[in-house]
Each structure stands twice: as structure tokens, then as C-alpha cells.
Amino acid sequence: MSHTARLTELGITLPDAPMPAANYVPAVRSGDLLFVSGQVSADADGLMVGKLGADATLEQGVAAARTCALSLLAQVRAACDGDLDRLEQVVKLTGFVNSTPDFGDQPKVVNGASDLLVEILGDAGKHSRSAVSAGSLPFGVMVEIEGIFRVK
């Protein structure tokens, strides 16, 4: 099944690829690898802000990470001229979680993105990963995730 058909089957609509917030490009291709800049947690209502371990729950963090995954896929689709089915493999994710020093569930938060990518892409969504704490993130968002993808 194509990635696009799987999204439809799951009832998921990708957002438009977010525009960069500063002086960088959303993605850079080198050979068959696509390096996608960090995508911050945002949904249809706007930025998803908060600090895990203080004013945001684990469940909110997981939901925030899922929105990052959708934005990553939107960037891949845009970089592949609108054809998400050119995505062959999620290679690596690096997730940053806005959290207090005593919060230790960063991997559980970033699982929101990892689990969604595997649900959508199957084996092509399995990837290596880092999940790290950040004392703060741009605009106060809960999560930011960058990714490396193999594309046709």
C-alpha cells in the first residue's frame, strides 16, 4: 500500500509544509538522503507550548510529538515534489523535549512521533533515534524533532 493510501485509510491529512521561522531551509537533499530541519509542535490551533514536568503532561507531550512527525512528513512530501511515495525509509529522528531537569520520560514523549511513523509507513518508518531534554525550545513549544530520510 502506498504511503498516501495509508494516510487516507487512517483518516490522517498532512498539514502544509511549515515555512522556516528563520534563515534556514526546510530540507536539504544529499544523494538519496533528505535532511529535514527541526519541526516544532503545532496543530490546527497553533503552537503547542509547555514544559514537560511542569505545566504539560506526558500525554500532551506525546500528542505534540505526533504533530512534529506529521510536519516532518509534510516537509518530505514538499521536497519530493508532492509525492510522499518517494519516501523509502525514515533513517533517524532527533527529538528535543522542553522539560524540567527531573523529567525523565523524553523517550516516551518522542514515541509519539516514532509510533505514528511506523503506523503510517510500516517497516519504512522504523528508524534510529535520540530523545533529549531541552531547558527551553523556540517559542516555548513542547517538542521539536528533526529527521533524516532516504528518498527516491
Rank of each mutant, 00 (worst) to 15 (best):
K152R: 12
E88D: 13
Q106S: 08
A74Y: 02
G46C: 06
T8C: 09
D55K: 07
G46Q: 06
L137S: 15
V110K: 01
A113P: 13
V97Y: 02
G61Q: 07
E59I: 09
G147Y: 12
T94I: 15
A64Y: 01
A124G: 11
Y24L: 12
D45N: 12
C68L: 11
S2E: 05
A124W: 06
G82H: 03
Q60T: 04
V36Q: 12
N111E: 12
L116W: 08
A63K: 09
G147W: 14
F103P: 06
S133H: 14
F103E: 03
V49Q: 09
I120W: 09
F35T: 07
Q60H: 06
R6A: 07
S133C: 14
R6Q: 12
K152L: 05
V109H: 03
D83H: 07
K126I: 06
V49L: 11
C80L: 10
G140C: 14
T67M: 05
L47C: 00
G61M: 05
G125M: 02
E88L: 12
R6F: 03
A113F: 12
A27F: 04
A124Q: 11
G50K: 11
Q89C: 01
G38H: 14
F103D: 02
L121C: 10
S30Y: 02
H3A: 12
V40Q: 12
V36Y: 10
L33H: 13
K152W: 00
G61P: 07
I12V: 13
Q106P: 08
D83R: 08
V36N: 01
L87A: 10
C80M: 13
K126F: 00
P138D: 06
C68I: 07
P26S: 14
Y24T: 11
V76I: 09
L84K: 07
D102L: 05
